[in-house]
Design a protein around this nucleic acid. Structure first.
Length: 240
DNA sequence: ATATTTCTGGAAGTTACGTCA
DNA sequence: TGTGACGTAACTTCCAGAAAT
């Protein structure tokens, strides 16, 4: 069904330029036998090189026996990067949707099915998880940005309301005391509990007691421009 | 049963290649 | 034709949990 990896690499340069850019297969540095890799990474400390050699030997068991000769590095040690075919990408995507992480058995089966080395399948899944996470982070970031904008706007509106009430209190205290309380419903941004200024025993209980605070009392709610948490913003003026 | 070492696999970050505008 | 941006395969390093000693 699938071409062998060698064939894919062979067909790389012949592949259609219209093919999606996501379809790559890499001929990896990892392909090279350990001795060759040491020549290719002279800057690696000796201790590190033996570590890599150990890892190579360890992983060799996972690889097919024909991997030695198809190392992806040129004579100059440069990496070659090849494309996955459409079919390979589709299969990998399907598999990823089913289970974003693979156990060794699944990895080996998938590798065999696609004509890739298990290591390539492993890398593809690692990168795919990273891309998914990055995308999700972007989405979350966008969502939080919108939340922030909404709250900023709400805060601005409430501050204006407080200013108006203060002004009213100064100009006509009698009217201020007799006015019906604001009907604004307020949601705490952190706990999302809604409080109704007309009902102090609303969904968000005010732990500071029944008295509440006056809008002009210099409390630490919207009047100060702070974050509103568990505190009703619009409160009934205290009756004297 | 507990402590230490080794192994294993994933996340995060980086490098480098191939493609396209 | 050269170049920079971009996507992504492959790599390195670090870490946590499991397995072995």
């Amino acid at each position: 069904m699938m071409e062998r990896a060698e064939d894919l690499r062979l067909s790389l340069s012949l592949s259609s330029p219209l093919a999606p850019r996501t379809h790559h297969v890499a001929a990896m540095l990892f392909h090279s036998p350990p001795e060759k890799r040491f020549l290719e990474m002279p800057l690696l400390p000796a201790a590190k090189r033996s570590e890599v050699a150990a890892a190579d030997e360890e992983r060799a068991g996972l690889r097919g026996g024909s991997d030695e000769e198809d190392g992806g590095c040129g004579i100059d040690g440069s990496r070659k990067k090849l494309r996955l075919s459409k079919d390979q990408s589709a299969v990998l995507e399907d598999s990823f949707r089913e289970h974003p992480t693979l156990n060794p058995r699944q990895k080996a089966a998938l590798a065999q099915q696609l004509g890739l080395r298990p290591r390539q399948v492993e890398v593809w899944f690692q990168n795919r998880r990273a891309r998914t996470k990055l995308k999700q982070t972007e989405v979350d970031c966008e969502f939080l940005k919108r939340c922030c904008e909404t709250l900023t706007e709400e805060n601005r509106r409430l501050q204006k309301e407080v200013q108006e009430l203060r002004a009213l209190k100064l100009v006509s205290p009698h009217l201020y005391m007799n006015m019906s309380p604001p009907t604004t419903l307020t949601m705490c941004p952190s706990c999302e509990r809604v409080s109704n200024a007309n009902n102090s025993s609303s969904a968000a209980p005010d732990r500071r007691g029944a008295g509440g605070v006056t809008a002009a009392g210099g409390n630490d709610t919207a009047a100060d421009g702070g974050i509103l948490c568990h505190r009703p913003i619009a409160v009934r003026p205290q009756q004297s």
